[in-house]
């Protein structure tokens, strides 16, 4: 006997709308932080993939996930997974659009130049390897003259 799939689906629906503690219009589902909802005979567990392991917002995300699940009628435990490792590839297309249009944040493509989300210029000038968070670098668009934050597509330490 295991917990019914319907319960898992209810929890999945509830926790996928939990938003990022900073970016209130992006969900943990869109950002690729939500990995899976799993159940055994007695409990339901939500697996999350942190963007960085040292993220100080993890306990806030955990609390929000537990509260959202409880509001849907189920108590859950949360596990932060050591693998898979989060990469910006996990960010969904619609989240990419919100990041670009609302926040002037873009994701460094695996191939080809990074584009300014405002004017499309591909000749961005690097200004700092790290910005407000370790996962973003800061560049300057000399055409529309706005700073652009770029989410790295590789882990820290790689060039």
């Amino acid at each position: 006997m295991r917990i019914a799939d319907t319960a898992i689906n209810v929890v999945r629906a509830a926790v996928s709308s939990v938003t990022d503690p900073e970016y209130a219009d992006l969900t943990i589902q869109q950002l690729g932080i939500l990995e899976d909802v799993v159940a055994d005979s007695i409990s339901i567990r939500v697996d999350l993939v942190p963007t960085i392991l040292g993220c100080p917002a993890l306990d806030v995300i955990e609390k929000d996930v537990v509260a959202a699940a409880r509001a849907s009628g189920y108590d859950v435990t949360v596990r932060f997974c050591m693998s898979p490792i989060w990469t910006p590839d996990r960010i969904s297309e619609d989240a990419r659009q919100i990041l670009a249009e609302e926040y002037v944040v873009t994701i460094r493509p695996r191939e080809g130049p990074t584009k300014c989300p405002l004017c499309g210029n591909t000749a961005l000038q690097p200004r700092s390897d790290v910005g407000g968070t370790a996962c973003r670098s800061v560049e300057w668009c000399p055409d529309c003259r706005n700073p652009v934050e770029v989410v790295r597509s590789r882990q820290m330490g790689e060039r």
Partner: peptide, 15 residues
Amino acid sequence: AKSQDEIGHAHLLYM
């Protein structure tokens, strides 16, 4: 993290 945020904000604003 907060300290890094604030310095990051200052950086963008100074630019």
